[in-house]
Structures are given as C-alpha cells and as structure tokens.
Amino acid sequence: MRWIGDNLDVIGGHLVSHLLLAVPPIVASFLLALPVGWLAGRVRWLRAPLLSAAGLLYAIPSLPLFVVLPLVIGTGVRDATNIIVALTLYGLALMVPATADALRSVDPRVVDAADALGYGGVRRFLTVELPVAGPTLLAGLRVVAVSTISLVTVGAVLGVPSLGMLFTDGFQRNIMPSILAGIVLTIALALVVDALLVALGRLVLPWTRPAAAAVVAPTQAEVAP
C-alpha cells in the first residue's frame, strides 16, 4: 500500500495514457460500424464476407497484431497508433455483426410507416432505425468498451505507456503492489466506463428505462376512466 501512495503521480499518468489509448478505438469502432453494419444488413452478397472477416479478425491475438500493423500502416513498432488501430479493428469485429443484427431486427412495419410519412433515407435511418436499434447497439458497445480497456494493457510489453506498465514494471522490479494496483485499476476503469455508457444510454434512449414505463402506466390508467 505504501508503494501505491508513493507512486500516485506515476499511476495517475498511466491512467491518463490508458484512457487516451482506449477512448479513440471505442468511439471509432462504434461510428465506423454503423455504415459497415448497415451495408452488411442490406447488401446480401456483402453480408457473408463481412461477417466472416469480422470473425477471423477477432481470432487474431492482440500482441501479434500490434507487431504486424506497422508493416501495413508504416508506423514504428512502439508507436501508440498501432494500439489504437488494432483495437479499432477488434472493436469493428464485434460491432459490425452487432450493428447488422440490430438494424435488421428493426420491425419492417416501423420502417414502412416512416416511408409512408415521407421520410427520406437518411432521416429515416437517423430518426427511426438508429433509435429503435439503440439498445442492441449499446449492448455491443459495452462489450467493446470493456474488452478494449483490458486489451490496452498488452501494449505495455512493447513499451507503449498505459496501466499495463504497472504489470511490466512490477514484474521486472519485483513489486507486487504495482501489479495488483494495475489489475484493480484496469477493472475499475472498465466498470466506470461501462456505467457511463449505461447512463448515456438512459439519457439518449429514455424509453428503455424501466422506471419510465412504471411512471407512464399509472398516468394512462388515470386517463382511461
């Protein structure tokens, strides 16, 4: 415990680096998966190749992917960009199938109703299909967020700073509290981000809130008689 107290500044720095590595892939994979998932759901001949590619990509272990990426995108081996790009790819591997499923599960009658009201393609997508698919998309995004935050630590073995540095430093210098602090903080960070996503979901998808339903029901009952 004393080690943690003496090294709060180091730990804080790693926490910030960790977030800077984890947040861009989470956001990017969500945004990029929308058009790709939409295509996978709509264009029949693209569906199978896109979904198999996502499955195969997800099978590739993270450390080897971090090492192979510089070859493709021209970065250095210890470049943080590799981590961000690799984790975005993993995020896409999870989010593309989730987005395709979520958009396909939108009731076709709802889509027809929007068409009948004269909604254009873009407006219908943004104001009807996307909100209806919202809860399923959020469930996928939560999985992406938690696994991304955990995977960021692997970059530490290549020298990319994150909470994973607490594992490599702790192991090299035989400091058990460092490793334990790293594990606890990584899990805590994942839980906090997950809770934030749930809160964000309640804010932008208010109809999924169970409490709201309970409030609505009695008012309708009051109106009825």
Partner: peptide
C-alpha cells in the same frame, strides 16, 4: 464470463509469474 472480459490477461500472467 463478463468479469473475465474486464480482467487484463497480462496482469494475471505477470501476477502469477511473480508469485
């Protein structure tokens, strides 16, 4: 199953390596 997703594998590996 969901807790395992949050657990950093490198953390577990180095922890057990040190122990």
């Amino acid at each position: 199953a969901s807790a395992a997703r949050a657990l950093p594998t490198l953390g577990l590996v180095t922890l057990l390596g040190l122990l």
